[in-house]
Structure formats: structure tokens, C-alpha cells
């Protein structure tokens, strides 16, 4: 908590009560401080932050095109460098759709150029801003408006895209996964990233009470439980090496985690078995390839 600025830089915003994404943005800006320029593409955080004339950012902030979060960060870094200003953080906050679907090309380009920017993806696992449509980071089985749960097809049929390892595969200086349920871990990762030169990518799980079908006070608990039951993991990629930060002693019950969310409530025991198997396969990969 000591690395956090006492100031608030994301205040009075219009996010739903209990929003995980706004918690991630608020905390990241408290770590980075006033001299940070935030870039927000179309998505919840720009929709709730800029309601003219209500301006909820206490630092410089700008809305980018949906696909252009990373390229606008590149431009801000280059433009201010040309003016002789270097003591600031260029930070982007994009949702899962703005990162893994629409903004992926710009992000890939920025990592390739190794521009000195910090890209934070707050992952609420669907296009929540427009009313819960499937993105490529929506997990298997989740019910969205474009992947409804019926008799034959039980929600989303595709697994979650592995955005963290895609970013790492570029040979990025620093990439990390986090969860708003383990906020101290997230704080230390943002702090660490702010001191590294080059492109940094942080992928933080940020539950959405509206889209996940949980009550507003369960956001933090469910984000923690996602890590505890093993469907999400806390890891870092640095110097060409993956490192696992936290391993639950014993996974909590994955069925219980799923049944708490109305987006998964239709799942059969067989579906849950599929999710459990894919979790086990993922952790086998982690055990074989990640340093502890």
C-alpha cells in the first residue's frame, strides 16, 4: 500500500457498482502517479470516464480509436520525446475485446518496435460495454448474448485465447498476469513494469458483476477464487523466461466457482469436467515450462 499515491486519479466515474475494471484502472494510476498519460479505447473505462462535461481522470487521459490503443501510446511517447519530455508514463487501459480482438495488431506492432509504453488489459471476459458479447477472451462455456446457452450448445464453445503467452512470444521485455483479487500482486507488477524500459504488458482479470452474473460485493472474492481454483494464474515473463508467482496448495472446487456465476449456471457436469480437464492440462504445461 505504501507505493500508492494518496491522490485519486479515477474518481466519480459512472462504472457499475462493484466494477472490477475500474478498480484495476484506479489502482494502476495510483501506482503510476500524476505524470502518466492514459489512453483508453472504446470500452467500459472510456465510456464511464468521459461523460462530457464530467471528466473523471485526474491525470491526462485521452480516448483512442478502438484498434489504436498501442499506436496512440507510441505516438504520445514519440511526440513528447520530440518536445524533450521524458519523465512520464504512457499507459493504455484496454478491455479484453480491445486487446485480443480489435487492438491486437497495433499491440503487436508496438511490442515489435519495443516502444516504451505500458499496456494494461483489464479482462472482464466479454464485450461488457455494449451488452455482453463474446470476445476471444471469453472462457469456454460462458453464456453471452452472442453465445446463448441452449439445449444443444452450452454457451461459448471456444477456449479463452492465451493473450499473455501471445504477448510473451514477441520477446517482450516484461509481461505479467494478475487478478484484482490479489491486488498487492497487481500493485507490485505495475510498479515493476513502470521501471522497465520498452514495452510492458499486464493482463489483469477484472470481474464484471453485470456480465458474470454475480452480486456487486462479490467482485474481489470471485477474482481471487479464479486464481485459487486454477482457471487463472499469476505469472510473469521476463528475460525470455516464464515465472509462476503463486501456486494454490490445493485447487478449490472449480464447479463451485462456476456455479456462483449466472453465466455458467447452465453447465452440465460433463461441461464442468471439460473445464476441469483443460485446467489440469494448462497446469501441467505451467509445471513443465514455468520457473517457480
Amino acid at each position: 500500500m505504501s507505493v500508492l499515491s494518496k491522490d485519486e486519479f479515477f474518481y466519480g466515474h459512472k462504472a457499475c457498482a462493484g466494477c472490477g475494471g475500474s478498480l484495476a484502472v484506479r489502482i494502476a494510476l495510483k501506482v503510476l502517479g500524476e505524470r502518466s498519460i492514459a489512453v483508453l479505447p472504446a470500452g467500459c473505462m472510456s465510456a464511464v470516464g468521459f461523460n462530457f462535461p464530467q471528466l473523471c481522470f485526474g491525470n491526462n487521459a485521452i480516448i483512442s480509436t478502438f484498434a489504436g490503443t498501442a499506436s496512440m501510446l507510441t505516438g504520445i511517447r514519440a511526440g513528447l520525446k520530440a518536445k524533450g519530455i521524458e519523465d512520464f508514463h504512457a499507459v493504455g487501459f484496454a478491455g479484453d475485446g480491445g486487446t485480443a480482438d480489435i487492438g491486437l495488431q497495433a499491440l503487436s506492432g508496438a511490442i515489435d518496435r519495443n516502444d516504451d509504453i505500458l499496456y494494461i488489459c483489464y479482462d472482464n471476459e466479454a464485450y461488457m460495454n455494449t451488452g455482453i458479447q463474446k470476445s476471444s477472451l471469453t472462457p469456454f462455456g460462458a453464456k453471452t448474448t452472442t453465445t446463448p446457452a441452449g439445449k444443444n450448445i452450452h454457451g461459448n464453445m471456444r477456449p479463452k485465447k492465451n493473450m499473455f503467452e501471445i504477448a510473451a512470444a514477441h520477446g517482450i521485455p516484461y509481461a505479467a498476469t494478475a487478478s484484482v483479487g490479489y491486488i498487492n500482486d497487481f500493485i507490485s507488477k505495475v510498479k515493476k513494469a513502470s521501471g522497465i524500459k520498452g514495452t510492458k504488458y499486464i493482463h489483469v482479470i477484472a470481474p464484471c458483476p453485470t456480465g458474470w452474473g454475480i452480486s456487486t460485493d462479490e467482485t474481489v472474492e470471485i477474482a481471487k477464487e479464479a486464481v485459487d481454483c486454477g482457471t487463472w494464474y499469476l505469472a510473469e515473463f521476463e528475460n525470455g523466461e516464464f515465472r509462476l508467482n503463486f501456486r494454490p496448495k490445493e485447487f478449490s472446487d472449480i464447479g463451485e466457482y462456476l456455479k456462483k456465476q449466472s453465466r455458467f449456471r447452465h453447465l452440465t457436469d460433463e461441461d464442468i469436467k471439460i473445464i476441469e480437464n483443460s485446467r489440469n492440462a494448462k497446469w501441467e504445461f505451467i509445471d513443465n515450462n514455468f520457473r517457480k
Binding site: 474518481y11 459512472k14 462530457f52 464530467q54 471528466l55 473523471c56 481522470f57 485526474g58 487521459a61
Partner: peptide
């Protein structure tokens, strides 16, 4: 404000 850029942290409504 005449231009879309103006003072940061400008709140006009409560929640």
C-alpha cells in the same frame, strides 16, 4: 469548453 480538452478531474454530477 470550446475544445474537447479541458481541466482534468472536472466533476459535475454525483453518483
Amino acid at each position: 469548453p470550446e475544445f474537447p480538452s479541458y481541466e482534468a478531474g472536472f466533476l459535475t454530477t454525483k453518483n
